[in-house]
Structure formats: structure tokens, C-alpha cells
């Protein structure tokens, strides 16, 4: 036993197997069914935009980490996820260079300027998307029908011309990843099963929209499946970095997203409000965390 070199460190001495990288790659894997559906409906445009956006996101991340003289950590998968999310939130006919620009903005303005992974207050993909909507309003609201590159159509949320089963399977105009409820649910199940998705945010978000749709006499199925609600509630609002860390806070966050979305959709001048609903709630996340601190064990209990 002499001369044995032993490692000294404080407890705990064992760690869970999960890592940041595994979590990010799980999200990317959960996006694969959505991407596959988008490719089936919209063909090469789906591959073109998602690949361009993902490569641009990872390239921008590497570039800015180098400029900041930080280790190049794109293997953590977070830029890949941001790029895929942005790509899947774009209309199929968008020019490639706009997707590249959006991904650059998402990573640089949405993430790196705040200090990189973990420090960004807003969902980077949505920051990129918001800038694209503001910069290229026409291109960002020009939709093509599935299986054709034929002309512009409004999404079903506005046009109201689609059967419920079409909405569910996704054979309707819309952004690449948002049309197929089936594919999104599949992705959501992957995330939930792997412990990467907290059910409170999507349930609070979607539940609120359902309740208000009923209250204000809207077609619930259209409100649920006709726009980008499902995609946003499952993949965007649940971004760990930009959503609350307390259990109650996640309910507040989801319900808040739902309320803002309803206000924009029902009374705003925009057809869709997903991007802004989540970005606004991102801004409130630090406050929500402060206001929803869990009750500590043994606080507020009386002696026997």
C-alpha cells in the first residue's frame, strides 16, 4: 500500500452521467422528427435552411469565442440547437443568406455579447427570428404550400382553410417546423422521457391558450395547431437558460406566455405572437425566479 497516490476531494464522490452536451444533443435529436416532417412537406428548402442556419450558428459561435479569447466550445451542442431551432422557425422560401444572417444575430447578439452559454437572458433563436421579422417582414411572412413551391398563402391561423387532420399531420402552409403537430409531439415525448423538458411550461402555455380560446369563442383546434404555438411551447419556451428555475416559476412563465400570445393574436395587429410572447417572458424570468422561491423545508412550521 506504500506509495499509493489517492485522489482527495470533497463529497459527493459520484456524479450523474448526464452532461450539458448530452442535454443539447438530446434537444437536437428531438428536433430530428420535426425536421424530417419539414423535409417531407417542403423538400430541399428544409435541408437548405436548417443546414445553413446550423452551420452559421456554429461558425459564429466559434468566431466569437475566438475573438473573446475563450476556448472553442461548440462541441457542447448549444449553437447547433440554436441554429436548428432558428432554421425550423423560418418560412420555406426564405433566401439562404437571410437564414445565415439570422443565425449570426442569434448567436452574437442573442448569446455571445452576454457572455456566452448560460448567460443570455433571451432565447437566442427567437432573438434571431425577431430581427429577421423586423428586417425582412415580407419574406418572413411569405408561405408556400407543402409539396409545391407554389405561391404565397397565409398560415391556417389566418386563412382558416384547413381540415383538422391536415393541421395535425402538417400538410398546411407555415414555417418549416411548425406545421406538423404529430412530429412536434414526438419530439416533445423524447425530451420529456429524457428529463430535458419540464412539463409545466408547455402545459401552462398551451392550457392558457385553450382556456382563452374557449372564453372568446375562437376555434380551439386552429389556435392550437394553426400557428407556431406547439413548436414554440415545446421547443422554444422550454429553453433552460432563459426560463425560470423554480417549479412555481415555470407555471407562471408558461401561463404568462399564453396570455401574451392570446392578447397579440386576438387583439394585436400581428397574425402570430409566439416570438414576442416568449421573449417578453424571458425578460421577466429573473423576477419570476425571485418571486417564486420555494418554501424551504422546516420554514413556517410550528412546534408540536
Amino acid at each position: 500500500m506504500e506509495g499509493t497516490r489517492l485522489v482527495l476531494s470533497p463529497s459527493p464522490h459520484v456524479r450523474d452521467e448526464d452532461t450539458t452536451q448530452k442535454i443539447m444533443l438530446t434537444v437536437a435529436a428531438a428536433l430530428v422528427p420535426v425536421w424530417a416532417a419539414a423535409t417531407y412537406f417542403f423538400g430541399f428548402d428544409s435541408i437548405r435552411l436548417v443546414v445553413a442556419s446550423a452551420l452559421a450558428a456554429m461558425g459564429s459561435e466559434a468566431l466569437f469565442l475566438a475573438l473573446r479569447r475563450k476556448p472553442i466550445t461548440i462541441s457542447d451542442g448549444s449553437a447547433l440547437v440554436t441554429g436548428m431551432l432558428l432554421g425550423l422557425s423560418l418560412p420555406p422560401s426564405l433566401p439562404t443568406w437571410m437564414a445565415v444572417f439570422g443565425a449570426f444575430v442569434a448567436i452574437v447578439v442573442g448569446k455571445q455579447v452576454f457572455g456566452g452559454l448560460g448567460y443570455n437572458p433571451f432565447n437566442p433563436a427567437l432573438v434571431g427570428r425577431a430581427v429577421l421579422v423586423a428586417s425582412f417582414a415580407t419574406q418572413m411572412t411569405t408561405w408556400t404550400a407543402p409539396f409545391t413551391d407554389a405561391v404565397t398563402q397565409a398560415t391556417p391561423l389566418v386563412s382558416g382553410t384547413a381540415g383538422y387532420s391536415e393541421l395535425f399531420f402538417g400538410t398546411v402552409p407555415g414555417s418549416l417546423g411548425e406545421t406538423s403537430a404529430l412530429a412536434i409531439l414526438l419530439g416533445g415525448i423524447i425530451l420529456f422521457y429524457r428529463g430535458v423538458l419540464d412539463y409545466r411550461i408547455p402545459v401552462g402555455f398551451i392550457g392558457t391558450v385553450v382556456v382563452f380560446s374557449l372564453l372568446f369563442g375562437q376555434d380551439v383546434v386552429y389556435q392550437l395547431l394553426g400557428g407556431s404555438l406547439l413548436f414554440g411551447a415545446v421547443f422554444m419556451a422550454t429553453d433552460m437558460v432563459t426560463s425560470p428555475i423554480t417549479p412555481v416559476g415555470r407555471w407562471v412563465f408558461g401561463i404568462g406566455c399564453g396570455l401574451i400570445l392570446v392578447v397579440i393574436r386576438f387583439w394585436g395587429s400581428l397574425p402570430e405572437g409566439l416570438t414576442y410572447s416568449i421573449l417578453l417572458m424571458n425578460a421577466l424570468t429573473p423576477l419570476i425566479n425571485r418571486w417564486t422561491r420555494p418554501r424551504i423545508y422546516g420554514r413556517g412550521v410550528k412546534d408540536a
Binding site: T20, I23, L117, Y119, M240, V241, P247, P294, I296, Y297
Partner: peptide, 21 residues
């Protein structure tokens, strides 16, 4: 690595603390 605010520490704390904070 940087904290990604996954909140797993909050979820597992058996005295309901927010370890990350």
C-alpha cells in the same frame, strides 16, 4: 462548465433550496 439553468439542483434538493443561487 457554465450553468445552463436546468434547475435540476432545485428539483432534487430535499430541503427545497435553490443551490444554484
Amino acid at each position: 462548465l457554465p450553468c445552463i439553468k436546468c434547475a435540476r439542483c432545485v428539483d432534487v434538493c430535499p430541503v427545497y433550496l435553490m443551490p444554484v443561487r
